[in-house]
Design a protein around this nucleic acid. Structure first.
Lengths: 247, 247
DNA sequence: GAGTGGTCTAGACCACCTG
DNA sequence: AGGTGGTCTAGACCACTCG
């Protein structure tokens, strides 16, 4: 598969040429230097800019495609894609809707603002001693689609060095965007386990449904460009009106 | 000198060189010519075999990696991966099990053997006129993990030209393997919508659980190397003992 | 040490899109 | 017509695995 780069900040190890180029472009994208829909410089421009050949540049651009940052169109260029993590890497669609169309309005709301805490005594994923010791930041969000509450998400982040999340808030309300821009932490991959469960009384209130309504329950571990740094999430999805798609 | 007509019938469609190489290797893999864990010929071997350069060969091999047919290891070679469709592209794992370990025994059983039928009047996905007219093959399977029934799968396949599925049975009990080997139809991608539902009485009997047990319900459309040829599935997953993972 | 895949150079022609 | 990405050639050196 893709292996994780051994390195986040340059001079620690030998970053390949194409990784340097990818990193530079990635940071320009997440920092807003290229808006959604904008074109990156052409391959030839990038060649002279980085003093290399098309093959190396193309390898960098392929990495960005794989990571979902850009699409490429022959005859046109490399198009920056919309924020791909808008709903925690999930997307929803209406029952009878054609795949690919998505004119839903999406809104998020905190059920619990970021706070520092111990890890839960019984956590769904094994933790390293280092993770366990440092405690975690915890936050809970409720996601709406077309003003229907559809997903509750509990997120756990190893705390060390990320205390600004407590004081500064999230950029555009997006956790991943904030991690990208302020900490150069990029989500590269994800593992997940999925089950069906019944609502608790509390959840029934949140989703405005009866108890005994089935929910999708997902446990996730996000892998990042920092070795041994993971973000964890638990998701509860109410799927009566909107199905979950495109994992 | 090289370059022209190493191949008899490419005037039909303009297959790129790297696509031809990929196709050739794909078919050798699915036909069992390379067992799981076996090594493909080295890049240099493939270069001389197909009269091309490493870059073209590497592009072909990258395609096979992306499609899950092989892994590549520096210093070793291109390793053929295990049958990736063993559980209909799903994998299961026990509650407290480490990701990656999978010592489960898996078994399948027909609830309904392949039969020719009309498409359901109200099908979960829009169908083209051509699909609708030709009718479909339908089959229903029950999947076991460690002798626990965990998944019911309804599969719908556009009928034209696939009548051997009725008479010949499936190779190794695998639908996708049969489509690969006997019809050169390879599954390339998938779209899916996922919801949580409650068991019907019939399903409760199959899964040996109470009614009101929540299930994961998945609607799928598989995309193949034949344009406009899709395979459809509905899946019901019982997730009390085994979570679903790795979509 | 021999062979493998990983990275990279310096070119070329083509298909496609846009002004 | 000019520029873009897509495909392809013909080499090179390196990092890694294995016998």
């Amino acid at each position: 598969m893709h292996y994780v780069c051994t390195n986040t900040s340059q001079s620690l190890g030998p970053l390949k040429q194409y990784q340097k180029i990818a990193q530079a472009l990635r940071q320009q994208i997440v920092s807003g230097q290229y808006a959604t829909g904008a074109l990156l410089p052409s391959e030839n421009d990038l060649c002279s800019q980085f003093g290399t050949t098309r093959m190396t540049v193309r390898q960098a651009l392929s990495e960005l495609v794989r990571e979902g940052f850009i699409d490429r169109q022959q005859g046109k260029g490399s198009v920056v894609k919309a924020d791909r993590q808008s709903l925690g890497l999930l997307s929803f669609r209406g029952f009878s809707e054609v795949v690919g169309r998505s004119n839903h309005s999406v809104r998020n709301e905190f059920l619990a603002r970021p706070s520092y805490t111990e890890w839960p005594a019984s956590f769904f994923h094994a933790l390293s001693d280092q993770e366990r010791e440092g405690g975690c930041l915890w936050l809970q969000r409720l996601r709406y689609v077309d003003d229907n509450p559809v997903m509750v998400e509990h997120t756990y982040i190893p705390a060390p060095g990320l205390t600004d999340l407590l004081t500064e808030g999230l950029i555009d309300g997006s956790l991943f965007r904030t991690l990208s821009i302020r900490h150069r932490i990029h989500i590269l991959d994800m593992e997940q386990a999925i089950r069906a469960v019944l609502t608790t009384q509390e959840q029934a209130g949140i989703f405005r449904c009866s108890e005994q309504t089935p929910l999708i329950y997902i446990e996730r571990r996000y892998l990042t460009n920092r070795p041994d740094f993971y973000v964890y999430s638990q998701l509860y999805c109410h799927t009566e009106k909107y199905a979950v798609s495109s994992f």
